[in-house]
Design a protein around this nucleic acid. Structure first.
Length: 379
RNA sequence: GUGGGUGUAGCUCAAUUGGCAGAGCACCGCACUGUGGAUGCGGUGGUUGCGGGUUCAAGUCCCGUCACCCACC
């Protein structure tokens, strides 16, 4: 018997794809946006609220949960689904990114990475094998290979990181024991088309259940990000989901779906929610802390169907922010998550109707720099 | 009533022998992309209680006055 994970590609509109990916905890309908719940919680949001906004997948993080409370404890408590009381699908990031973004004094070698953690400075080591064992203890539906995320413009660093990421990808596949978890490989290569091509070809050649694109939205330009997506789009397997890690904004979702991406996660909606900012459907942002909203009776984003927009005024949100009430973070996070989840659902509907470009045109999104030129080139 | 003390940005306070009146917080705005309830950046804001005087120059020295605080009659 093959993998229990089957990706069904339903419709392709231009290069945009709609599909269905089955996991032991439900069907993921793509394009799909996944809220990030690093420490086994989407910050300021309950599982019931996640279900109400239509989330079907949340991320948790290997690095954080390994350090606290410990993957063995999570396993003893019945696994991540039971522990955090989230009944739908979960994806755990491998911890590779966090080692490079959070941990101090890391030393990478071909076998793995040794680092001092950000909580108490104690020394730890991740290898492909140890990260697979941790993720099997945590018990998510989708788990990620250990990768090395390099500074995107550093050619030599990316060459080394790609080589290690590939070697580690193969070892993660070899170390995987559970059959009820899907393992995704990760493409690296910075902004360099030939490295990205090489990496996509290698990851595509292995027996992963999905393909992830790492090392983007880490400081490179939008044009570079789009170019990388176009490069890997033609190489990654059509019959496996493509996951763009750590992206993004409403504009980013549209531009990436247009270039063949199926799955997204990003901290931005919840982080912005904690920092007083709201996405709008058309791609702009509102800073609800601003004085101009002090007497504004309108909802955050007119036409949004989220709980916050159905219920409260901008003036009330602004008051909560000024008073430093924690409900502000909850309501803005609900709105921001709903906006991205609903945008992904709407993009899916448009693709299923083979209507993607016309739908996107109707969104009237704010153009990001260089996107006009890019559009001309991609047609 | 007498003696002493304090008055500087919305708040709490700095400012050397007289030498361009500042900081923190607050306020106003910007940033945030496989999490950082963090942080960073930028900005508005002054008749130095009031009125005189000395001086090239006064928050600072002198005189008067007002307010508040403390102690003592």
């Amino acid at each position: 018997m093959g993998s229990p994970f089957h990706f069904q590609l339903e419709v392709v509109s231009g290069r945009a794809r709609a599909g269905r990916f089955s996991t032991p905890h439900g069907v993921l309908e793509t394009p799909l946006f996944a809220p990030v719940g690093t420490q086994a919680t989407v910050k300021a949001i309950t599982p019931a609220q996640l279900e109400e906004m239509g989330a079907s997948l949340v991320l948790a993080n290997t690095y954080h949960l390994y350090l606290r409370p410990g993957d063995k404890l999570v396993a003893d408590m019945g696994g991540l689904h039971e522990f955090m009381q989230w009944p739908k699908s979960i994806l755990t990031d491998s911890g590779g990114f966090q080692v490079f973004s959070l941990a101090a004094r890391r030393q990478v070698d071909d076998d793995g990475v040794t680092f001092r953690n950000h909580l108490d400075g104690s020394t730890h080591r991740f290898t492909p094998e140890s990260v697979m064992a941790i993720q099997e203890n945590l018990g998510a539906d989708i788990i990620m290979a250990l990768d090395e995320c390099a500074e995107p413009h550093d050619r030599a660093y990316n060459e080394a990181a790609v080589a290690r990421t590939h070697a580690w990808a193969r070892r993660c596949l070899d170390a995987k024991r559970r059959t009820d978890q899907a393992l995704f490989g990760i493409v690296q290569g910075g902004i360099f088309p030939d490295l990205r091509q090489q990496s996509a070809e290698f990851i595509a050649s292995l027996d992963f259940e999905g393909s992830a694109i790492g090392g983007l939205s880490v400081g490179e330009s939008k044009a570079d990000m789009h170019r990388v997506l176009e490069t890997v789009d033609t190489i990654l397997p059509e019959d496996k989901p493509r996951y763009l890690m750590g992206v993004g904004t409403p504009e980013d979702l549209v531009e990436a779906v247009r270039r063949g991406v199926d799955l997204f996660d990003c901290v931005l909606p919840t982080r912005m929610g904690r920092n007083n900012a709201a996405f709008t459907r058309s791609g702009g942002r509102l800073n609800l802390k601003n004085a101009e909203f002090a007497r504004d009776p309108k909802p955050i984003d007119e036409g949004c169907g989220c709980y916050a927009c159905r219920t409260f005024s901008r003036a009330y949100l602004r008051h909560l922010i000024q008073a430093k009430e924690m409900l502000a973070a909850t309501l803005l996070s609900i709105h921001n998550l709903h906006t991205l989840i609903q945008l992904a659902k709407d993009l899916r509907t448009a693709i299923l109707e083979d209507n993607f470009e016309s739908f996107v045109g109707g969104l009237n999104m704010k153009q990001t720099a260089a996107s006009g030129e890019e559009m001309a080139r991609i047609e």
